[in-house]
């Protein structure tokens, strides 16, 4: 079982990122579940979404306490949330950031998803879309295949810029 926790802010598309990742995993022939933590969230408030990926049907509904991977779509949540909480020893971090930063020694992957989205003019109501490019970064990390990542994106979004943004994130991910 591979467990992922996604940190973002309400309205940034963290839930959709979880769904895209689950769909890509299913296209890889695996089982997956994706679910947000539903509280009294508002636009802009820190939120988390979860994804489980496994080779067998997933029977667990409770929240993920010890993720294998933490994705931070909005680094500003790190001021108010301990995004590394419960991260397994050897677990990885994927950061949406321009600069690399130390995440307490955890293997950290960095990609400027916001910059990619702005470059591709991938915006909704003035906010850059992060959830389709992040799939490219996850494919580069080997979580899903790039073929399935693209397939998941095109199944959910018709605008081809989503795929080109994912391809850019695949190329620009820094380990």
């Amino acid at each position: 079982m591979f467990e992922v926790r996604i940190h973002s802010r309400g309205g940034q598309g963290g839930v959709t990122a979880a769904r895209l990742l689950a769909l890509a995993a299913v296209r890889d022939g695996k089982y997956a579940t994706a679910f947000p933590f539903y509280g009294a969230e508002r636009r802009g408030a820190p939120v988390v979404s979860f994804v489980r990926i496994d080779d067998a049907p997933i029977r667990i509904s409770s929240q993920i306490k010890k993720p294998d991977l933490v994705i931070v779509l909005d680094p500003s949540v790190m001021d108010v949330v301990d995004v590394l909480q419960g991260l397994k020893p050897g677990g990885r971090v994927l950061l949406n950031a321009r600069e690399r930063r130390d995440m307490k020694g955890y293997p950290t992957f960095t990609v400027d998803l916001t910059g990619i989205a702005l470059r591709e003019k991938l915006e909704v109501a003035g906010s850059p879309i992060l959830n389709t490019p992040v799939l490219g970064a996850l494919a580069k990390m080997g979580i899903v295949t790039m073929e399935s990542a693209k397939s998941a994106i095109t199944e959910m979004f018709s605008d081809p810029r989503n795929v080109s943004a994912a391809e850019a994130a695949y190329r620009e991910l820094v380990a």
């Binding site: 689950a22 769909l23 299913v26 089982y31 997956a32 579940t33 994706a34 679910f35 997933i58 509904s61």
Partner: peptide, 12 residues
């Protein structure tokens, strides 16, 4: 079906 645990959880 359980609220959120199934209603809002995405599965195959």
């Amino acid at each position: 079906l359980d609220g959120f645990l199934l209603s809002h959880t995405m599965q195959p």
